Amino acid sequence: MRADAQRNYDRLLAEARQAFIVHGTDASLEDIARHAGVGIGTLYRHFPDRYALMNAVFEQEVELLTVRADELLTADSPTDALVRWLRMVAVHSTMYRGLSAAIMAEGDAKMTACKVPLRAAGGALLERAQRAGEVRADATIADLLKLTNAIVLVAEKDPERQAIFDRLMDLTLHGLRTPAGVTAQA
């Protein structure tokens, strides 16, 4: 990529990240381009649609979540590691109002740059907890990520979001565990 094109790309990402934090993921693409000092055509040359821009903005943060998942694979408690990681995913999603809705609304066709690595990273943590017999065998990482994003959506709409967020996460994560004395099936 040419140096000027790279500068434009970097400015667009920086402006988009800030706009998504302040205004949510439905922020005006025209405003993002204007604040980056480029035309809307330049934005669309780099990012053919809103989802391409969102994937690029969140790619670095998703990478951090996957690195953290790798680190948690050696934690003493597989279930605690999974729970900690799901909370990290939720906290990441709450930074950007509308991110959870965007991820859930489009199924698997959009936001693949976010979904694929998150599912792989979380899937490894889930499998470890299931092998240890601590987490229900019928749980899937896709389900857990959908539940996490649904909780974030609810918290976004609630003025006392931290309390509701914590309560719903606790209820959901408690439901993952196998009942005492029952061995999870592989």
Rank of each mutant, 00 (worst) to 15 (best):
M1D: 09
R2K: 13
A3C: 04
D4P: 02
D4L: 10
D4G: 05
A5Q: 11
A5S: 14
A5Y: 10
Q6G: 03
R7F: 08
R7S: 10
R7E: 13
N8S: 14
N8Q: 15
Y9R: 15
D10R: 13
R11P: 02
L13F: 12
L13E: 09
L13N: 09
A14C: 03
E15D: 06
E15I: 01
A16R: 01
R17Y: 11
Q18F: 09
Q18G: 08
Q18E: 14
A19W: 06
A19D: 08
F20A: 07
I21L: 14
I21D: 07
V22Y: 07
V22I: 14
V22L: 14
H23W: 10
T25H: 00
D26Y: 06
D26H: 11
D26V: 09
A27S: 11
L29W: 04
L29E: 12
E30I: 09
E30V: 14
D31E: 15
D31L: 11
D31N: 14
I32Y: 07
I32Q: 03
A33S: 03
A33H: 00
A33E: 00
R34E: 04
H35K: 14
H35I: 02
H35N: 15
A36G: 08
A36P: 09
G37S: 08
G37R: 03
G37P: 07
V38Y: 11
V38F: 11
G39A: 08
